[in-house]
């Protein structure tokens, strides 16, 4: 179902406020990954706050989410807090000794994290396993896997893509955060990934694409993907790394850089907040 105008506006407003919270937390702790968290903001927020069936973090029938590009986990924690799965006050413990909120997703520490991640290239296989288990157990949940475009340079992703087409669980949706940038530079500078849709198609997948920062377009793409059962489906979400903060946009240098006081103030100015808020 397309998003109503009210829902769309509510999600857009939420994404804006999560972006502010994100930079506030990352500025405070002086560590963490802004670029890839900002590019995945609409994707993760639309899934968690609109699309996924998530009555409780341990409900066996819940939809599953695999954050294969694990470094974007701050945006996932913000969404888990929004769902009430972790207290909002806990967010500032991110990456600190003793916290449940690890620098990369940790399934045994954090309620609501379905799979651990960090080393890139493992999530699509893990998601496929979960989807196959769901089918065997006659559940009708969907398994979503979010991948980075740089991450797709890992050969293991393509072993998983091949296997997903063969075993076709019917409930697996991959999403590529296609921001064109990785750590040392752009994809084109470091290792061109070529036509990702064509690659997935040739591996036996159905491919969809959308503006990954348009909550309505992304929501529609998810609805469409859920209608596809004869093949696994991938949504290539066109995004901008560092989206929403002009000086971070498209810059590999903002992959994991600490946010200075000056940059924090500038970021908040752009997002329309104030440093004391």
């Amino acid at each position: 179902m397309p998003l109503t105008k009210e829902r769309r506006e509510a999600l857009e407003e939420l994404c804006l406020s999560l972006r502010k919270d994100l930079v506030t937390i990352l500025h405070r702790i002086q560590t963490g990954h802004p670029g890839g968290s900002l590019s995945a903001t609409e994707i993760i927020t639309t899934l968690y706050q609109e699309k996924m069936y998530l009555p409780a973090p341990d409900d066996p029938d819940r939809d599953r989410f695999v954050l294969s590009k694990g470094h974007a986990v701050p945006m996932l924690y913000l969404n888990l807090a929004e769902k009430g799965f972790i207290p909002k006050e806990e967010l500032l413990t991110l990456r600190q000794a003793g916290s449940r909120l690890q620098g990369h997703p940790c399934a045994h520490k954090t309620p609501g994290i379905d799979v651990s991640a960090g080393p890139l290239g493992l999530g699509l296989s893990a998601g496929l396993g979960m989807a196959l288990a769901g089918r065997l157990q006659k559940r009708n949940h969907t398994v979503y896997v979010l991948l980075g475009d740089g991450e797709l340079q890992e050969g293991g992703c393509w072993e998983a893509a091949m296997a997903a087409a063969k075993f076709n669980p019917g409930n697996l949706i991959a999403i590529v955060d296609h921001n064109g940038v990785q750590l040392d530079g752009t994809n084109d500078e470091i290792m061109p990934v070529g036509d990702l849709a064509a690659k997935f198609r040739s591996f036996g997948w159905e491919t969809l694409s959308c503006d990954g920062h348009d909550v309505s377009a992304f929501s529609d793409a998810v609805d469409q993907a859920k209608q596809i059962h004869d093949k696994p489906a991938v949504i290539i979400a066109e995004t901008v790394k560092g989206k929403g903060i002009s000086f971070m946009e498209g810059k590999n240098t903002w992959h994991g850089k600490p946010i200075s006081d000056v940059d924090y103030q500038a970021a908040l100015n752009e997002l329309g907040g104030d440093a004391n808020g």
Partner: peptide, 30 residues
């Protein structure tokens, strides 16, 4: 190098000898 050249600092070699530097992207096995 596998896309962590700014962290490993292999980039210093890469800048001096671009012809002898191969950044393969995120593909450690390859």
């Amino acid at each position: 190098e596998a896309d962590v050249g700014n962290s490993s600092k292999s980039i210093l070699f890469g800048q001096a000898f671009p012809d002898r530097y191969f950044n393969v992207g995120i593909a450690e096995l390859n």
